[in-house]
């Protein structure tokens, strides 16, 4: 088994059984996993809670993965979203990356590859948050004339 990875993850897929088994596997590797089976609930959860990465299925009934991606990015542009899909076409991947996804993976996924992508997404998010903090501190210092 791969090494432990501490990360807060949101898994989004309309296949409940897939959510169940994948979250058990990720939890077994040290992650905290939240799940959503609809785009609407994923948008709400992403608004309410900070996640290191979101793993989002492209094809879902109602608000689909692409629309969910756009809505989440609109609310929180720093969130790192990895798209999963059964669509084997490049154009969907390009569309998702253009809409702000950090990566695009085809189902069934290789778990080690997914873990690597999650780790990369988490590291990227940490960098963004650190940079934001740094800029905020600089602003405070500047406003105080220090």
């Amino acid at each position: 088994m791969a090494e432990e990875l501490e990360a807060n993850i949101l898994l989004v897929d309309d296949e409940e059984e897939f959510l169940k088994v994948l979250s058990q596997r990720l939890e077994g590797r040290g992650m905290k996993v939240d799940t959503s089976s609809t785009g609407e609930s994923a948008v709400e959860k992403a608004k309410a809670k900070g996640f290191d990465a979101i793993v989002l299925d492209l094809a879902m009934p109602g608000v689909d993965g692409m629309e969910t991606l756009k809505r989440i990015k609109r609310e929180n542009p720093d969130l790192q979203i990895i798209m999963l899909t059964g669509h084997a076409t490049v154009d969907k991947g390009v569309e998702a990356i253009k809409a702000g996804a950090v990566d695009f993976m085809e189902k069934p996924v290789d778990l080690n590859r997914l873990l690597k992508k999650i780790e990369e997404a988490k590291n990227k998010r940490v960098l963004i948050v650190e940079k934001q903090h740094e800029e905020k501190i600089k602003e405070i210092l500047k406003s105080k004339g220090w």
Binding site: E15, F18, V21, R25, G28, G86, K107, P108, L111
Partner: peptide, 13 residues
């Protein structure tokens, strides 16, 4: 592919 993904993750589990 969805079915295969569930089978793959279940056997992985």
């Amino acid at each position: 592919k969805n079915h295969l993904a569930i089978i793959k993750e279940s056997s992985g589990l």
